[in-house]
Amino acid sequence: MTLTPAIRDTLAAVTTATLTTVLLKKGLRRTWMRGPRPLRAGQARVVGPAFTLRFIPAREDLATPESWSSPRSTRGAIEAMPEGVVVVAGTEGITDAGIFGDILCARMARKGVAALVTEGAVRDAAGVRGTSLPVWCAAEAAPPSVAALTFVNWQEPVGCGGVAVYPDDVVVADDDGAVLIPRALVEAVAREAEAQEKLEAWIMREVEKGAALPGLYPPNAETKARYEKETGGA
């Protein structure tokens, strides 16, 4: 399923909390990535297809400063990133070194990358915050990536925060973290999440009026009928 502008706009208007509930109803429990948190306060919600990066624990003959000049390097990966992607970097939970610093993040921002999401760390954190690239990460660390990690490849399946991420799955990130939507489910999840948020906005208004929760949240048949009557389901 292509992430159309209409679907992107719908997903940008719903929370990751709502998305996890919709995905749970579809039987998907491992969609929220453990670890990534907003690097800056007030980052806007981002939506985009996943562009994956895979890191593994460092092996000394491969994880060297010289490897940064290899065609298969983080630098090469950045130049392959199309506009609008959410970069998802799997590091096997290693946070002892920063996978990217300010210069690489600035380049991603210049290329129109929507965001970086990683279970790992970034370095030059003050400089990264100074770029326009939204970042969700698990930590900040001074050492360069090769001090603890070997970069393997881009655009292959990765694990990030306990979630399996395939290229072109859709990632939504906000203040609560980052959520993965399988590519084949994007349209249905967007439609159901939008409907759920409208219903819950109506439920919140009822709670503010003093309504009790039983039968209201979750709504029973009577409550659903009243909602449909009062709003037309819109």
Score class of each variant (00 low, 15 high):
110 R>Q: 14
113 V>P: 02
115 A>E: 06
119 E>T: 15
104 L>S: 15
213 L>N: 10
99 I>A: 02
32 W>E: 02
43 Q>S: 11
14 V>P: 11
207 V>R: 15
167 P>K: 08
85 V>M: 03
30 R>L: 00
35 G>H: 07
105 C>M: 07
167 P>I: 02
89 A>R: 00
136 W>D: 04
110 R>G: 14
16 T>F: 06
69 S>I: 02
45 R>V: 04
11 L>V: 01
78 I>C: 04
138 A>L: 05
37 R>D: 02
184 A>E: 14
123 R>I: 11
157 P>E: 01
234 A>V: 15
122 V>S: 14
16 T>M: 07
130 G>H: 10
153 N>D: 14
86 V>P: 01
129 R>G: 13
57 P>E: 09
71 P>Q: 06
54 R>D: 00
84 G>N: 06
103 I>Y: 13
203 I>S: 11
70 S>D: 12
34 R>I: 10
33 M>G: 05
171 V>P: 01
53 L>F: 00
175 D>H: 11
218 P>V: 15
150 T>A: 12
174 D>L: 08
12 A>S: 15
47 V>C: 03
53 L>I: 01
98 G>F: 03
37 R>T: 12
140 E>Q: 13
35 G>M: 04
65 P>F: 08
152 V>F: 03
142 A>D: 10
145 S>G: 05
178 A>F: 01
91 T>I: 13
98 G>C: 07
63 A>N: 04
94 I>V: 14
91 T>H: 15
57 P>S: 11
206 E>V: 08
120 G>M: 08
217 Y>P: 11
71 P>H: 01
167 P>D: 06
154 W>G: 01
119 E>K: 10
222 E>Q: 13
153 N>M: 10
143 P>T: 07
200 E>I: 09
207 V>M: 15
211 A>Q: 09
170 V>C: 06
165 V>A: 00
171 V>S: 01
210 G>S: 14
83 E>L: 03
40 R>M: 09
118 T>M: 04
226 R>P: 01
176 D>H: 13
143 P>G: 07
110 R>F: 05
71 P>D: 02
24 L>N: 12
211 A>Y: 05
28 L>Y: 03
151 F>A: 12
111 K>N: 10
64 T>E: 08
40 R>W: 02
16 T>E: 06
106 A>Q: 13
45 R>Y: 02
122 V>R: 09
88 V>A: 01
139 A>V: 00
131 T>E: 09
204 M>V: 14
68 W>G: 13
198 K>E: 07
112 G>N: 07
68 W>M: 13
42 G>W: 09
149 L>M: 14
77 A>N: 05
12 A>K: 11
145 S>I: 00
204 M>K: 08
229 K>P: 00
172 V>K: 02
107 R>K: 15
